[in-house]
């Protein structure tokens, strides 16, 4: 069987497991390979520096780019340091700070998204996890530079969306994007976390589903995932996309409309606005 065909046979839950695999390239692997010479910038200038989010500046074929990635880590030690890629409010605030800086200097933003969700700790609650996510959604909707977000593993709920209010959102072939984890959904809805597999199917969280709903524009093939050729192709696609977006005079209006139509039912328009 052709490797591509084999991959397409994966069930929704198998994709969830693949997306979570700690051997999969993480945010920093993408940064190292697609943006060599990346300079990391730390801190939100308000409270601290969240290791779950890595951000900084790099050059892409001569164009300066702000790059932000959620980093899960590979080893137990890395995962502990990175909080397994569950960002705290200060991570989102650091990301927003760097995005505002990108806006100031007119450089595009690339985000690599990979999280099971924003961190659910008591400190995160005290420091306004909800407010931090909300502020990113609000501010990213009118950020005056092109934003490209790529879901490379788990696109877990609001914690992933907080870096994905973008002009283009792409997903790796085996990445998932969901409002809740299949386990969480199964335990809330069916009081049985064991039904995660069925929940994964019902939630329609695969890249194919997301593209069908219009939530993402492109699915990136995982053929050769992590190899030099893979990163080279990806880099070229990113470069092309950013240069096309940079030339768009209607960038913000198009971004507004991109999200505006998500979830609109054609029947509603037929029924009239209701006033």
């Amino acid at each position: 069987m052709h490797p591509g065909e084999e991959r397409e046979m994966l069930s929704a839950y198998e994709r969830v497991r693949t997306a979570r695999d700690n051997k999969r390239p993480t945010g920093m692997d993408y940064i190292r390979n697609v943006f060599p010479g990346f300079i990391e910038m730390h801190g939100d200038r308000r409270f601290g520096d969240d290791p779950a989010i890595v951000g900084g500046i790099a050059s892409l074929n001569g164009t300066s780019v702000t790059v932000i990635a959620i980093e899960k880590g590979h080893t137990v030690r890395e995962r502990s340091f990175r909080n397994s890629g569950a960002p705290s409010p200060e991570g989102y605030r650091k990301a927003l700070r760097l995005m505002r800086q990108a806006e100031k200097f007119g450089r595009p933003v690339v985000c690599f998204v990979d999280t099971s969700g924003a961190y659910c700790g008591s400190g995160a609650e005290e420091r306004g996890q909800g407010q931090a996510v909300a502020e990113n959604l609000l501010e990213m909707s009118t950020l005056c530079v092109p934003v490209l977000s790529i879901v490379i593993g788990e696109g877990g709920s609001g914690g992933a969306l907080a870096l994905s209010v973008a002009d283009r959102v792409w997903m790796m072939e085996n990445a998932v994007y969901s409002v809740i984890s299949p386990e969480g959904c199964a335990s809330i809805l069916w009081k049985d976390p064991g039904k995660a597999e069925a929940a994964a199917e019902s939630l329609r969280l695969t890249a194919q589903d997301a593209r069908m709903f219009g939530v993402i524009e492109e699915i990136i093939s995982e053929e050769g995932l992590g190899t030099e050729g893979f990163y080279k192709n990806l880099k070229e696609r990113i470069r092309k996309e950013l240069s096309a977006l940079s030339a768009d005079p209607e960038l913000l209006e198009n971004r507004y409309q991109r999200f505006r139509r998500l979830g609109t039912d054609p029947e509603w328009e037929a029924a009239g606005p209701g006033f």
Partner: peptide, 26 residues
């Protein structure tokens, strides 16, 4: 919170409403 029976589309409502709030605010 978001209504999980509408999956990733319900998640998108967070972005969509936020963009409308921003325009109103601006």
């Amino acid at each position: 919170g978001a209504r999980m029976q509408e999956g990733v589309l319900s998640l998108m409502q967070m972005a969509r409403t936020s963009a409308a709030v921003k325009r109103h605010s601006d």
